[in-house]
Design a protein around this nucleic acid. Sequence first.
DNA 1: ATTGCTTAGTTGTATAGTGCAACTAACTTA
DNA 2: TAAGTTAGTTGCACTATACAACTAAGCAAT
Lengths: 240, 240
Amino acid sequence: MSTKASKLNFEKPLTTVDIVVFSLLENKLNVLLIKRNEDESEPYPNQWALVGGFVDVMKDENLEATARRKLLEKTGVKTAYLEQLASWGNSNRDPRGWSTTHVYFSTLAINDIQTPSSGANASDAQWFDVIDNGVATTLAFDHANILATAIHRLRSKVEYTSLPAFLMPEFFTLKELQNAYEAVLARPLEKSSFRTRMLSTDLLEATPNYKEAANRPAQLYRLKSKIDPVFFQRTFNPIK
Amino acid sequence: MSTKASKLNFEKPLTTVDIVVFSLLENKLNVLLIKRNEDESEPYPNQWALVGGFVDVMKDENLEATARRKLLEKTGVKTAYLEQLASWGNSNRDPRGWSTTHVYFSTLAINDIQTPSSGANASDAQWFDVIDNGVATTLAFDHANILATAIHRLRSKVEYTSLPAFLMPEFFTLKELQNAYEAVLARPLEKSSFRTRMLSTDLLEATPNYKEAANRPAQLYRLKSKIDPVFFQRTFNPIK
DNA sequence: ATTGCTTAGTTGTATAGTGCAACTAACTTA
DNA sequence: TAAGTTAGTTGCACTATACAACTAAGCAAT
């Protein structure tokens, strides 16, 4: 690093953190978006954007702390699966100048979410159905691109991990878990191999309870770890 | 973003880009490190660090441009496989203040590298053998941690991609490619399944030429694409 | 109570990519 | 011509998957 750099008297880029918050609503993959305020002096007024904000160098110890602070503010969720996605930074993504964002993604269990409208200032948070590689609305900044990358990463990882399990409530049946997988992947999976896969690892714990329905009751399971996903050895389908 | 934020009158973190540059030297995985200068007014004087530096908001259009600029400065390589690894940012990784780094990793073909000593100011660049999860020297900042993460990511991806192919010269034999895989993974692979895997995809192009030796000549291959790695359907070994 | 319907869960067979071991092929050197 | 070395192939076992047909457990209607 040059002497010039060491004096730090050069322009620094803006530093933000964004979180792509996924959940399952009515068995469909959803993403949480925030409506930006109407102040015309800020970029993209009134437009939908990912959850996120500036790093607060006084409050935040590290980037993940910024992400968790924002997640808590907008969803009321204290602990959740949170994984770094990637970072973006260039001269034109924010009209205010050279800007970087460190992007995380999170998969929230349905029952853990406090309705976005509950927090102060959060009435502009709303869940959007994920359709193909995005949502049915325009997004601020380069957030459409970031969201597409997050969806792609999520779908890729779902092929060989247990990530959708983090979208489930405390107790769930194998069929419900399969539904979650299918909602994320947007394609059907085969029942028997799905069950074999899920039960072949240390992912689930069977409970003695059954979910009653208008037909054969289904055994209820729970996650052994709400933090660590399980990795499978193969992806789901053969090449089509 | 708050009104306070919109005025941008708050302290911004430092923004750097680091690149973990991998190559194969004498059939061993190596990483390129730079010796920081002896100016005591800068952090970690005389210590080894990853290739990297501050984002230059005047010169660099985006983060990858910063990475490629640094890569060119230190290795003379203009085009190389470059993938984003992750980002780090916290209040204590740099004594100068809250600091973030966007980290990339690169796999360089042996013959593409101009000796580090060739560039101006680059005489302090040196290749280090990768041993276990690091190198046999102390690193500046949190670079030992970053390097360990990069090695881990590289090894993980090598289990199901063609990444080591980017470490090869223009023409190579299947045995040489297998040696590269084994150097990265630090474990032996089985010959026949390795060959089947490599030839089952669109990765390689057979040439009519053979590498002559003191015994049976080996067919020479070349990469079909020097940019896109191939993804295989499974990882290499069964669970041990 | 029996039949039919629905959903949960199992079983048997085929397939594909891998690991393993033994084999053949091509070349050099003595 | 034989021995040694490395390249490359072949056959068989193994395992996780896909697919299809099956059984199991509940409800509702008759």
